Structure formats: structure tokens, C-alpha cells
Amino acid sequence: MGMSAFYGPPKPEPDMIALILHAINYRVIFLHTSDVYGPHTTEIFVGKALKDGVRNKVEWASKFGIDYTDGKLENLNKLVEEGKVKYIGLSEVSASTIRRANDVHPITVMQLKWSLWSRDVEADIVPTCRWRLYLPTFQGENLEHNKRLYDRVNGIARKKGCTPSQLALAWVHHQGNDVSHYWNHQGRKLQPEDPSFVHKINT
């Protein structure tokens, strides 16, 4: 997203293609884009970066808006049957929408905002995807509680020798083998330790 939209001016195409290849070289194997990023700009960056056999090294997901009532999901189902699309996933939808969509075609992946600070999805959406789980969510009036939690996260990060953001990503990573974290990149050069550090932090 940050390569072409929403976070400052669009980045130079050669720099972004080089960044994608740099990330793949450091074992980043999942790339996520959308037709609205640019629009279409990030998809073009990725397409150009994945030439000459690089495509086989990664999974590439791109999302777009869809109306579940107009038959478009059935059309995606046909694309899967034709081998043009490998999987169908959803992004930021309700638990009821997940269930309705899954009746048309198995939903393989769900993109959602889930972090130490955004845990409301644990009440309904996450259980719909995999298991029945409830953990309290943070509410606006709990600001002081959140501040204390943030201080604790900083303290744990210092003990682990990492940044708070790396620790937060590690927390997401360790929620299960069916959960994958990703960076919303805003142009900073990817460091070699970024993709691998979350694997090294002990829970």
C-alpha cells in the first residue's frame, strides 16, 4: 500500500521493484497488493518484479471490492476451477459474510486487523475462521490500562533485545500456524533482520 498510495507520494518504480526483489531475497514469500493501491500501481510493480522465474518463489494475493449479492463470488469460483486463481480469501468482513461466502466456495484466507491493540475480532471473526475463543477487547475508556500494557510491552522488548514493533509482530506470528503477519511498508529499506526476527523471539 505504502509504495503507491495513502502514505505520502508514490515511490519510484525502479526503487520499489528493487525493494520487492530485496525482500524475496530475504525469504519474504507472501506479497499482498490491491487494485486500489495507485490504483493498479502496486500490482504493476509486483508483476514486473516477478519476471524470470521469481514468480515461483512467492505467493501473491491481490484484493478488490466485491458485492456478494451480485454473483461475482460465483465468478471467482469459476476462475479457481479454470486454474486462473489459486485461492479465494476475504478482507475485513463480518463473521456472517465469511459463512455466506464459504457456502459458495471454500474461503482459504482471511485478512483482518488483529494486533495487541485491535483484538475485537477475537470475539466472533477469529472463532468463525478456526476456533471458539474469547478474550476481552480494549475499549476507549481503558486508555490508562492500555498505557500500562504499552509500558509492559516495551519492558519485554528490552529484555528480548528487540523493538516493540518486532515483539508485537512476533505475538501475531505465534498465534498459530494458520496466522501470517505482514508489514504495511512505507518506503523504509528492509533490513535483513526484519523478516526473520519474529521467528527468533521466544514466547
Rank of each mutant, 00 (worst) to 15 (best):
M1Y: 01
G2H: 01
M3T: 09
S4M: 01
S4C: 02
A5K: 11
A5G: 01
G8M: 03
G8D: 01
P10A: 06
K11T: 02
P12F: 03
E13F: 00
P14C: 07
I20A: 05
L21H: 08
H22R: 15
R27F: 05
R27M: 03
I29C: 04
I29P: 00
F30M: 12
F30R: 08
L31N: 08
T33A: 15
V36Y: 07
V36E: 13
T41N: 13
T41V: 10
T42M: 09
T42Y: 00
F45M: 11
A49C: 14
K51T: 14
D52T: 10
D52Q: 15
K57M: 08
K57T: 06
K57F: 02
E59Y: 14
K63F: 05
F64Y: 15
Y68D: 13
D70N: 15
N75D: 15
N77C: 13
N77R: 15
E82W: 08
V85D: 04
K86A: 07
L90S: 04
S91T: 14
E92W: 01
E92Q: 07
S96V: 05
S96P: 05
I98E: 01
I98A: 03
A101Q: 04
D103M: 04
D103H: 04
P106E: 01
P106W: 05
I107G: 01
V109N: 07
Q111K: 06
Q111I: 06
L112I: 08
W114H: 09
S115L: 06
D120P: 00
V121I: 02
D124V: 09
I125Y: 00
V126M: 07
T128M: 11
R130Y: 10
R132F: 07
Y134M: 02
L135V: 13
P136C: 08
T137Y: 00
F138I: 00
Q139N: 11
Q139L: 11
Q139G: 07
G140F: 01
E141H: 13
N142D: 11
K147H: 12
R148V: 09
L149K: 02
L149E: 02
Y150M: 09
D151R: 11
D151Y: 03
G155N: 14
I156T: 12
I156A: 11
K159F: 04
K159A: 15
C162L: 04
P164I: 09
Q166L: 12
L167R: 03
L169D: 05
A170E: 02
V172T: 07
Q175L: 10
D178R: 08
S180E: 10
Y182S: 13
N184V: 06
H185D: 14
H185Y: 15
L190Y: 06
L190R: 13
Q191D: 10
P192G: 12
P192S: 08
D194L: 09
P195Q: 06
S196F: 12
S196L: 11
H199L: 14
H199K: 14
T203C: 04
T203P: 14
T203G: 12
